[in-house]
Design a protein around this nucleic acid. Structure first.
Length: 334
DNA sequence: ATTCCTTTGAAGCTG
DNA sequence: CAGCTTCAAAGGAAT
């Protein structure tokens, strides 16, 4: 299990994770050092090749586009032009640390799309590296909505991995976001793709924010005849729902899901997640460490933007409690 | 329309 | 403190 010390309670404990990774992975690292180097060479060449090929006759042109209205298309075109210009400007806009991974890293082809592996896990040497071709995707509605300003084909074609920012509401960003200090700005601009660096002008809602859909009813909290818990409940409902930051595996799934969908021609998320779970285990420690680091930055950013937020805020707020494993098992027996 | 399924990891809750 | 529960994402299937 890659989660090595289970978290010691300190916030953003991923430093420990990384340290643990280093310690535990040291021996294996030595064994695989030459192989890793070879893989790195392959990666580099593929990256270069990909970057070379991803210029003008972009794959974005060959991919099906979501059914967008003219305004959206114009908007996307504008954004694309802007992104291009910014990239050419250099300087401020650094590529994502993962931007170069424009290739498939797939396990044993025989088990490529099976969540049920014969030996439980695959050795790194069993991986096959293939040049990545952007899959023909059914752009999911929810994704399109939440990332409408930078549609997936655009993002992918510019090799920017989407990372969330956490604006307080659709109309802007929290004071914390606006008051980001120099170190935070540095973190954001150096580690996050440029499009995700929030600007006060931005009006793009973040997926972490879920509008409650509850009508604004001024004076609810002071309504006579309402019990305190009732009022509190109303207050809670009116708060924007701030989602948990994604963990390493969730970030990995976000990136890899489209590839699995394209490779395996499956759409059921449960099946896809099984496959991704297996692939996650087959990743090298270094590869996993990238996502742990990414997740650590996510949590850091989230805590900076929402200093008062706690996972407690969302705890038990889902409509229905998920069934426990024991309940499921019990049901299976009867 | 809502819930379940399925995964891992982080964090909250409970005894 | 250990162990359990919930929630993050996703979308088809089941209810």
């Amino acid at each position: 299990m890659p989660q090595l010390n289970g978290g010691d309670g300190d916030d953003l404990g991923a430093n420990d994770e990384l340290i643990a990774f280093k310690d535990e992975g040291e021996q294996e690292e030595k064994r695989n050092v030459s192989a890793e180097r070879d893989l790195d060479d392959v990666k580099s060449s593929l990256v270069n090749e990909s970057e070379t090929n991803s210029s003008s006759d972009s794959e974005a042109d060959r991919r099906p586009k979501p059914n967008l209205d003219l305004e959206s298309r114009a908007r996307q075109s504008q954004l694309f032009q802007e992104a291009l210009r910014r990239q050419q400007d250099g300087g401020l806009f650094q590529p994502s640390p993962y931007a170069g991974y424009s290739f498939f890293m797939i396990p044993d082809l025989g088990n490529l799309c099976s969540p049920y592996l014969t030996n439980g896990a695959l050795t790194p040497s069993a991986r096959t590296y293939l040049p990545f071709q952007w899959p023909l995707l059914d752009v999911p509605g929810r994704s399109a909505i939440r990332d409408s300003a930078t549609p997936s084909h655009l993002v992918r074609s510019t090799l920017i991995i989407p990372l969330p920012m956490y604006p307080l509401a659709a109309g802007g960003f929290s004071p914390a976001a606006l008051a980001m200090n120099a170190s935070m700005s540095s973190l954001v601009s150096s580690s996050f793709p440029p499009r995700l660096v929030p600007t006060p002008q931005s009006s793009i809602p973040h997926p972490a924010i879920i509008p409650t859909g509850v009508k604004q009813e001024p004076g609810v909290s002071s309504q006579p005849g309402k019990s305190v818990p009732e009022v509190q409940e109303k207050e809670d409902e009116r708060k924007p729902h701030i989602k948990k930051p994604l963990n390493a595996f969730m970030l990995y799934m976000r990136d890899e899901r489209p590839k699995v969908v394209a490779q395996c021609q499956v759409k059921e998320s449960a099946t896809i997640n099984q496959i991704l779970g297996q692939r996650w285990h087959s990743l090298s420690k270094e590869e996993q460490a990238k996502y742990y680091e990414l997740a650590r930055k996510e949590r850091l950013l989230h805590s900076k933007l929402y200093p008062g937020w706690s996972a407690r805020d969302n705890y038990g707020k889902k409509k229905k409690r998920k069934r426990t494993k024991s309940e499921t098992q019990l049901e299976g027996k009867t």
